[in-house]
Amino acid sequence: MYSRGTELSVGVFVLLGALCLAFLALEVSGLTQSSDSGAYRLSARFDNVAGLTTRAKVSAAGVTVGRVVGIRYDEKTAGAIVDMEISQSFSQFSEDTSASILTGGLLGEKYIGLMTGGGPNNLADGDVIYDTQSAVILEELIGKFLLNMSSEK
């Protein structure tokens, strides 16, 4: 009843399980990118980050270049500081790069878009971007729209 065949297939079974765990960790939940050693950190200061979460993607021209790793409140400037990890292979962001919080689709998740400028020097590890555009808050937008409507009459 106890044969090499059984042993072998159980071994394959367990390895298959491990493989799937790895697949779930790397491909599905994207575990590697947060601990990517080939990455550098940038920060950006926003007035409002409503709806942005950690692990949201950071993209430039629609290409994912990094990930949000932390969001904290900055008491000095009364704004939010977003820490991002940018992959080392995208190191050509100029120092006048601007960051904005964008939304994927009407109900999609929030992400950060970087728009590089024309300055001569590039951003380096630990630099902070101040030229930012905050999240669009739907309620405010609707409020403004209604206000305009009523004032036009």
Binding site: L24, A25, E27, V28, G30, A56, K57, G104, E109, Y111
Partner: peptide, 18 residues
């Protein structure tokens, strides 16, 4: 394909979900 997987990775937390 890119946004399919990227969206998946952005929303699935290893410790919370998996």
């Amino acid at each position: 394909s890119g946004s399919f997987w990227a969206n998946m990775q952005a929303s699935v937390e290893f410790s919370d979900d998996v």
